[in-house]
Simulated assay, not measured.
Amino acid sequence: MILHIVTTAGWPADEITPLDGDEFVHCSDPGTVHLPADRLFAGRTDLLLLEVDPARLGVPLRWEAGSPPIPGGPWFPHVYGPIPASAVVGVHEFPPGPDGTFELPAALAQR
């Protein structure tokens, strides 16, 4: 499974499309989702974590360096096209901890 962060206002939706100016939808895996969450959304309390089944995408998925790339850093799954709602197999609340940073929700960490 791969993971995608959305706001509560952005879900549900028929599909998730790349952000303006991007050619892919940014995603993460369970071990890296805290990195973009902390960098882009620190302290936000209106987030959900979508669990996406890559086999249901119907568009290319590529593992690539982050954006911006971190030398020697982790690679992230990038979805080159829209993610259909039918590919979302789980929706999890994604609140920050008391210090404003994020951890993988317990429901996903137990897998």
Rank of each mutant, 00 (worst) to 15 (best):
P98R: 15
L108V: 05
D38Q: 04
E51A: 10
P74L: 03
A106F: 10
P77H: 05
A55V: 11
P18R: 04
P96Q: 10
L50W: 03
L108R: 00
F41P: 03
I2E: 05
D29A: 12
G81W: 00
H4Q: 13
A37P: 00
F102C: 05
R111E: 14
R44M: 12
F24R: 02
P68W: 10
V79A: 09
M1H: 15
D20A: 15
V6I: 10
R56V: 04
L35S: 01
H34S: 06
G72R: 06
V79Y: 04
H78A: 15
T17N: 05
A85Q: 11
H34T: 05
A55R: 15
I70H: 11
A107Q: 14
P105V: 03
P84C: 06
A37V: 08
A106T: 13
P84L: 09
L108I: 02
V52H: 01
P18K: 02
E93Q: 12
A9T: 08
S86Y: 05
G66K: 04
S67G: 06
R56F: 04
I83L: 09
C27Y: 02
T32G: 14
L3I: 06
I70M: 13
F102R: 02
P18F: 02
A65C: 05
M1K: 13
G81H: 01
P36S: 15
D53V: 12
I2L: 13
G66L: 08
P54K: 03
I5H: 03
D46F: 11
L57Y: 03
G73C: 07
A65D: 08
V6T: 15
L47Y: 04
V33P: 00
D38A: 05
V89A: 08
L49G: 02
L48P: 08
R39Y: 11
H92L: 06
P54M: 05
H34F: 10
T101A: 13
L108A: 03
I70E: 15
P95L: 08
Y80Q: 07
P12K: 10
L61Y: 12
C27N: 10
G97E: 15
L3S: 00
F94W: 01
A55Y: 08
S28Q: 11
A106I: 13
P60D: 10
D46C: 13
L50Y: 04
P98K: 14
D22I: 00
V91W: 06
A42N: 13
P71H: 11
F94T: 00
